[in-house]
Nucleic acid binder design. Structure first.
Lengths: 345, 345
DNA sequence: CGTGACTCCGTGACCGTTCACGTCCATTAA
DNA sequence: TTAATGGACGTGAACGGTCACGGAGTCACG
């Protein structure tokens, strides 16, 4: 930070001098204001492109007290969901002509979260998208945001907050329903790590669907999203609960992958003996053995809705739309079939 | 963008008024300058934390003509490599106290690239990390960057440019060597999409290692990184080149996954009949069937080196270190074994 | 010919910081 | 005593834009 200042960049004044008008006029053509004659506008425009003028966004933000960059804070970017959210909300921002700042947090503590939000606010983002996979009480966050709008992306904090959700519960119900429709009656659940909101909701979805079908809940074991944990969980299922399930709703695709391996190592064929449905539809899912039936979430839509919701906050022009929710849907492949000893439904 | 200005944020002047000193003094304690007495420093500090003061970065950047945010432009963030680069360079930036702006490009044309770089420059980033998987002539990029330093992250543009690389070629040679050491003599290559630099270099690595072993090149087919293309490529290998290879070096793990499936569908056992080595070590690789031997790249190190290299550019204080290169290494699992009909080497 | 309205454009202040000075006071050396 | 030194702080001017004015023309109309 201790080094000579950079070479000068071109400013609005330079352009003004080059064209022979005042800096204000240049500003006007840059911002497309009407009160400029066609001829001078053309002349200024000409010089503008000729010298490749590029407005200094920091100066503009400072002067106008407006901003066109959105911020995102996320946790656990190494997982599929968070990284998808990151990529897609950037894309959506770009489509609306907004820039994008990102701040990841390495550990889910309020301290780190505060820090990330603070950083983004210091840079005068116009609003913040925040995705935290765990449920966490973040009431205090309003203090640090002050007047910077916040949108929760598939997250739940301790307070009322504009949000956009993926309906995890409904997705999980759909997975369960699929199995039910195939004729399964004893369905286990391979659960994600409990503090995660998505894990909990997917568990609830499975439970509710089973209840709705007036069926007893099958065994539940849990993992930590990784394939390895899925492997171990399936082992447990086999050794502790064998006979008590003919299908399993798995909370994500990676654990499903691990589970598939565990079943295979025990010479349990899928889907002939046990059916499996995953969640996420990661790109590899179609090439597992067998190809995994799974629940797909439309992250592109999530990204779009998120920034849209944020911009509604920033600029509360029209009626605020209700909190949008995205419905995940089933991708049917080959890991789920009719249960054994039962010719059909 | 047409809406009432926000409520006022606290400024350095407010803090000054609250403490009863001049704004300059406040600035001084914020920046840790020495010429402040211990007592006033303490008083200011107190108020600072009390009101939760947060300096306006845009104003600071404007005034100081310095910046502490790094920019990244990437393509194809849906792939493993690019998304890893994104996440890890953000992490590395944060560790150095730098903020992070991101701009993805949806299509690899110079126009889009220019636009992304321009956007970042307009926001006065202190430097730009750029990762483009294709080789592309970007000489003109110096114009648009002007005096903003650029670092190529595992990328090759048409001009001399500070860079940090992953030694793709050496990684691929290692994969090939592993197969060679196991006793394979006829080794095929499943190549990535040709315009990609990584695809080309991995191809070259395989070729060179084969040449070095004085062996003829096995068949080459190519895919597009997806599991699906890997599946198709392996089909071609089987139908057009059967008998001409006992092992295949696959350019990434996803294609390897597809290939595994193709072999399986043709009842060709891996690794008993055909050995396979992948590239990337995606989190799922260890749970393929069989677990995939593959080449791992340390993206965390890449991220760290990238921003480090960038900061050396920004602040050319000490001797510039040579372009750093990361060595990928083999993760040995079970998809590669001795060739059939050959008890060992 | 004066008046208003409208079009086009320039001026000065300001946004929240940093930077280069300048000032004041106390201490020390001559 | 006086000048020089230096520590602690304040002042004014940037930085590159935007915003709210205001002024100079031009035209139509009374």
């Amino acid at each position: 930070m201790r080094h000579p200042p950079k070479k000068k960049n071109l400013t609005i004044h330079d352009v003004a001098a080059l064209t022979g008008v005042s800096y204000q006029t240049v500003s006007r053509v840059i911002n497309g204001m009407p009160e400029v004659s066609a001829s001078t506008r053309a002349r200024v425009q000409q010089i503008l492109t000729e010298v490749g003028f590029r407005p200094n966004m920091t100066a503009r933000q400072l002067a106008s007290k407006r901003s066109t960059t959105v911020g995102l804070v996320t946790f656990a970017t190494s997982f599929y969901g968070p990284s998808q959210i990151m990529v897609n909300s950037e894309q959506a921002s770009k489509e609306l002509g907004l820039s994008f700042m990102f701040s990841g947090i390495v550990e889910q503590s309020t301290q780190y979260i505060r820090r990330a939000v603070n950083e983004l606010c210091a840079h005068q983002v116009c609003g913040i998208l925040i995705h935290l996979p765990w449920e966490v009480d973040l009431r205090e966050l309003h203090d640090v945001c002050r007047n910077v709008p916040l949108v929760a992306v598939d997250s739940d904090f301790g307070f009322e907050c504009p949000s956009v959700f993926i309906n995890q519960e409904s997705g999980s119900r759909e997975a369960t329903r699929h199995l039910l429709q195939l004729g399964h009656r004893k369905i286990a659940h391979l659960c994600g790590p409990v503090p995660w909101r998505a894990a909990k909701l997917r568990y609830v979805g499975w439970k509710k669907e089973m209840k709705a079908a007036r069926l007893p809940l099958g065994p539940v074991v849990d993992g930590d999203w990784t394939a390895e944990s899925g492997f171990e969980a399936a082992q447990k299922l086999i050794s502790n609960h064998w006979g008590k399930f003919t299908a399993v709703v798995v909370a994500n695709d990676q654990m499903a992958l691990g589970a598939i391996r565990a079943f295979e190592e025990n010479s349990i064929r899928i889907p002939q003996k046990i059916s499996l449905v995953g969640f996420d539809d990661i790109p590899e899912a179609g090439f597992f053995r067998p190809p995994l039936s799974t629940i797909k979430q439309d992250f592109a839509a999530l990204g779009r809705l998120s920034v849209q919701c944020l911009m509604e906050q920033v600029e509360p022009s029209r009626t605020t739309s209700p909190t949008p929710t995205i419905q995940p849907f089933l991708i049917e492949r080959e890991s789920a079939a009719k249960p054994p000893n039962q010719p059909g439904r």
